[in-house]
């Protein structure tokens, strides 16, 4: 139950959505784009989110696509994680997304919602970071296609009133060998302690990590260390651990030291899975 009410709009075109936002924003209604809406509902009920106008973008055609277009796979931002999993067009995404929340919730949580979430795990972004994907963004100045690396730094840097519409991923990344694993504090449910997604392309291993820092990331420095030829796997992992972004999370899910322990073993697993390295 939300302690506040809001106006509810369900535009059918991107332009309409963008204009509505402008209009409602000018009226001071703190409008919010809404696709799965789980975060508004769960944070709103404990007073951590507020809006006076919701713009539900689920009916916008461009946000619902899931198709191969030329050499790219397009995935709409309002598709639910379950829809993406069931279609299974991007196995690394399927695997990584299938570890978010739980199955029923993933029937409501959408790709765009997860990537743009305030809660900092945003695990669905990891495959796109690895695949150098592009994202389609709609705004007042129309649509634009940009490299995800240009707009995702810890979080998706959307301007006020912009909408994440689609992701576009080159098919060679979709076919690449991958690894994805989520370690939790205990057993098989809960937030990640560490989630690692990795893929191998052009003889290089790429990794992206969630749960280590208060943002998901892919780091050039980490990958350079991991791919250093002529070094033992242990030395490569040590090298990667030495160049991690900061800060390392230290919370009820796990201490910073323990997270590093977990990450170390997971990176070893990445090398074992993708680089044929055998340890022990």
């Amino acid at each position: 139950m939300l302690p506040f009410d809001f106006e509810y709009y369900k535009p059918e075109t991107l332009q309409e959505a963008v204009e509505l936002y402008q209009y409602l924003d000018q009226q001071g209604k703190q409008p919010m784009f809404f696709s799965g809406g789980t975060e508004l509902i769960t944070l709103g009920r404990i007073d951590l989110a507020y809006t006076e106008a919701v713009i539900d973008i689920k009916d916008i055609a461009e946000c619902k696509v899931m198709q191969v277009s030329g050499d790219h796979l397009l995935i709409g931002s309002t598709l639910t994680l379950t829809q993406i999993e069931e279609a299974n067009l991007f196995p690394l995404l399927t695997k990584t997304a299938s570890q978010v929340a739980d199955h029923s919730a993933r029937g409501k949580i959408t790709l765009g919602g997860n990537i743009c979430a305030r809660i900092f795990y945003r695990e669905a972004v990891l495959p796109f970071l690895l695949a150098d994907s592009q994202v389609v963004i709609a705004g007042t100045d129309g649509g634009k296609v940009v490299a995800i690396h240009d707009v995702f730094q810890g979080e998706l840097k959307l301007k006020r009133g912009e909408i994440l519409v689609q992701t576009a991923t080159e098919s060679r990344f979709i076919r690449a060998p991958f690894f994805s694993f989520k370690r939790r504090q205990q057993w098989e449910t809960g937030y990640p302690l560490i989630t690692v997604a990795a893929l191998k392309i052009d003889q290089e291993v790429r990794v992206a990590v969630s749960g280590l820092c208060p943002f998901p990331f892919r780091s050039k420095e980490v990958e350079t260390a991991l791919n250093k030829s002529g070094q033992s796997a242990v030395a490569r992992v040590d090298g990667a651990l030495a160049v991690l972004p900061k800060p390392i999370l230290n919370d009820v899910e796990g201490s910073a030291e323990y997270r590093l322990f977990v990450l170390r073993n997971l990176l070893v697993d990445v090398l074992a899975a993708l680089d044929g390295v055998r340890i022990r």
């Binding site: 509810y8 799965g36 809406g37 789980t38 509902i41 769960t42 539900d56 689920k58 379950t82 199955h103 029923s104 919730a105 029937g107 409501k108």
Partner: peptide, 18 residues
């Protein structure tokens, strides 16, 4: 949990208008 179009849905996570 209820079913919406045949799929499980946590009805606390869905607005009625949806």
């Amino acid at each position: 949990t209820v079913n919406v179009d045949g799929w499980p849905m946590k009805s606390c996570l869905m607005l009625t208008v949806e």
